[in-house]
Design a protein around this nucleic acid. Sequence first.
DNA 1: TTGTACGCGTTATCAT
DNA 2: ATGATAACGCGTACAA
Lengths: 348, 348
Amino acid sequence: MTASIQQIARKVGVSKAAVSMALKGHPNISEKRRTQIRKIAEELGYHPNAAALTLNTKRTGYIGFILSDDMAGGWTNVYFSTILQGVEACCHGRGYGLHISRYNLSNIDTFVFPEKVGQRSVDGLILAGGRIEAAVVNRFREFGTPCVAIGDTMEIAGIIPSVAQDVEGGLLKAVDYAAGLGHVRIGFRYEPTPRGREVAETLIRRAKANPATAHCQVSAIDPEGLWGDYYAADQLMKAWGGLPKDKRPTLIIGNDQTLLAFLKKLRSAGFNCPQDVSLISVGDTFLCEFADPGLTAVKYDLEMIGRTAGDILIDHLEGKKPLSPASSRKDFAFELAVRDSCGVPKRD
Amino acid sequence: MTASIQQIARKVGVSKAAVSMALKGHPNISEKRRTQIRKIAEELGYHPNAAALTLNTKRTGYIGFILSDDMAGGWTNVYFSTILQGVEACCHGRGYGLHISRYNLSNIDTFVFPEKVGQRSVDGLILAGGRIEAAVVNRFREFGTPCVAIGDTMEIAGIIPSVAQDVEGGLLKAVDYAAGLGHVRIGFRYEPTPRGREVAETLIRRAKANPATAHCQVSAIDPEGLWGDYYAADQLMKAWGGLPKDKRPTLIIGNDQTLLAFLKKLRSAGFNCPQDVSLISVGDTFLCEFADPGLTAVKYDLEMIGRTAGDILIDHLEGKKPLSPASSRKDFAFELAVRDSCGVPKRD
DNA sequence: TTGTACGCGTTATCAT
DNA sequence: ATGATAACGCGTACAA
């Protein structure tokens, strides 16, 4: 079915080498031979065989995208599928194929080294997830597979480049906006990872340090369950609703999926958004736009984050750049997409 | 970094062939040699090289999932990412890798043959999208790449196996439920493809033929834009709201994404669901569950659809089954997930 | 058990 | 200048 370089060579009456050279415009082949060979190759629908190519170039033309197991929803998680969208666009645009899979990246004890990586069928990896253990990353590195991470899980800082949104910046902007509306008690539902905890602490500290928000009481709402879990809304409802009215945050910051689910819980418990509580999502997927009320959100260009991760990896693979933590990026622009989930707080 | 079979052979002091045989338990190799060789292989972290393997087995161990370009949202489209979830689980479970990409499958004039497929870097393809042209599928077939389609776009019926939900069955169940609640004017917003049109016509005919729903006026609401588009809600609003009150459907059936967006449009236009209009989604993603009100939906196991498509393809690749349209599946169980978007219609 | 050919494309060396 | 020959990379399989 597929024409090999051999068959073309026989048909034209030259050697394999001649065909190979003709196809890539090597000067050793005369003008007319080249056009003749190319014509035949075209007719036979010649494509170089990927396996043969890989065998001597040592490059597969594929990169792998591994999404950590602990991510709620897996590929249906809109936050990550939006990033995937960017990665895929990047790969496609640069002529690379994209191989996707899910593995446990968050726990070295249960980590299984991906067989396909072991067989060297990808040139590099993009690792994504809420938590990625350093030990896991080191397994890949020791094996010699270049890696780039998406998300700035603290465990791997300083090991490989990571591409992430500026979470702290976004949170401060959200708090600032909240303060401007008159909110004082602000709850931040952080993500269930060490990094999530760290982010919460940083936010509290920096909000205190900022004159515009220093009077706010920013509190961390402890998470349970998986990263970005819908079902975390139950727990959030309990945490928030369980507080006496004059202690409850009047505004809650969290991720889109959790807040979307929380919105429903609120209604069924007889509360209204934004009358009883305001919400701000950190990360703006289409869920925020189509929620009702629309969720005010810190909007990052998630596709761009995916595309950037792809570019860093491929630039490295093509020898353009070394792959060091110094290539990390978290300087993406963000803005507040104001919708209808925030209002002026009720007086106690 | 990676140990080749050569290196192991040298280290042990035997031939390449001996190592190859030992590793796969060939009886020609003595017990002790085998264990010895395996031990060394283990120590050196031996993995067979995928390219070399492919070169003589003619099998890559990868399958490709191509999502048509014309799909609104791309990988973020929850309907398809849920299916992807199933495909990925299937591949992972059966030891295959999954390569994903987007190409235009709906129009042969703008179709570009995927380079990676041309290079034979996948063993087979799963094609997904609202509309897949027969001419496009035939290109793959002529090239010799086994294909399975997801969704029963009429253009390719009889060419390759397709795996799809039973749309008509689900629609009838929805109409039946609607009739039971007392709805008479029922609108079905079909998808913007020839197959969508056909589905609408079938639904209307079969609803008429069923005694329980024969009194209903099922009407087709013409679509615009992309398949599953959020922004189709504008047009749906115009079509519905533009009708005189006593002609308006009291219940609308459509896809989850369009209805989710429509829900917002309704509210901002001063309507209420389900008081003013009831909604039923055909296809139940998490969007339906977290919409407010929750969307009553015909629930298909989308992951199972993805898994099944993967199984059919891989069964074929492993020689277990021929790949004919006769392998098509659309007999998946479905049920109505009753939520809060349907009520008793108001009297005119 | 070993030697060797094979599959496929690249590239360095050698011959006109 | 042009093109052929051969080796290489890696694992499989068959003849020796």
